[in-house]
Amino acid sequence: MTTAVVEDPKRRGWRAVLWGRAEKPYVNPYVGGALLGVVLFLSFFLTGNGLGASGGLNRYVVYLQDLLAPEHVDRVAYLLKMAGGDKNPLDDYLVFMTLGTLLGGFVSGWQHGRLKFETNKGPQISVRTRWLMAFVGGAIMGYGARFARGCTSGQALSGGAVLSAGSWAFMFAVFGGGYALAYFVRRLWN
C-alpha cells in the first residue's frame, strides 16, 4: 500500500490514476436521497431484502471466531445460528452486499477525486483523540446495532420504507440518543 502524498504534483502511472482526479462536490442531498430510494426499492423489488451493513460485518466477525474457537461458537446459541457445525457464516447474501458497499464507496471516491488519507474531526481535538473516539463510538454502535437487530441501513432505512412499526420506533430512538448526548460531547465536533 502506498502512502503517496496527495499534494504531490509529479504523480505518474497508476498513482496518477488513483489519486490524480480533481475533487468534485457532493450531489444535492435530495438528489442523493432519491437515488438511495431507487436503490433501496430495487433491492426489495429484485430480491425481497432491503439494504444492510452490520449483518454482513457480523458474519465476518463470526467467521474469524469460528476459525479461532469453533467449540466456543458451537456453545453460544447466537453464534451457533450463523456458524454452528459445518455452516459457513460467509455463505450469506449480506456478506456480498457489504463487499459491494465497500467497492461502490471506493469507486465513487476514486471517480470524484475523494480518495484521501485523512482524519475528519472537530477543530478542538487531536487526531489521536479522534481515532480513539471513532473506535469507541464504533464499538458502541456495533453493539447497539446487534442489540436492535439492525443498523441504520437494515432497520431504519429498509424497515422504514416497508413501514415496519418497530423500525420507526427504532429510528426515533437513534436520533433521540444522538441528540440527547450531542450537547455533552460538543467539543468533539465544534
Binding site: S54, T101, L102, S108, F135, A139, G144, F147, A148, V174
Partner: peptide, 30 residues
C-alpha cells in the same frame, strides 16, 4: 434500547456502520 445505544455511538464516533464502510473505502482514517 439498541437505537438509543446507536445514537450514542453515532455522536461519539461520527458514523453508522454503513457509512463507516464507505468512509474506510475512501481511506478516511477515522
Amino acid at each position: 434500547v439498541g437505537g438509543l445505544i446507536m445514537g450514542v455511538g453515532f455522536i461519539v464516533g461520527g458514523f453508522c456502520p454503513g457509512t463507516s464502510l464507505v468512509s474506510a473505502a475512501t481511506f478516511k482514517i477515522d
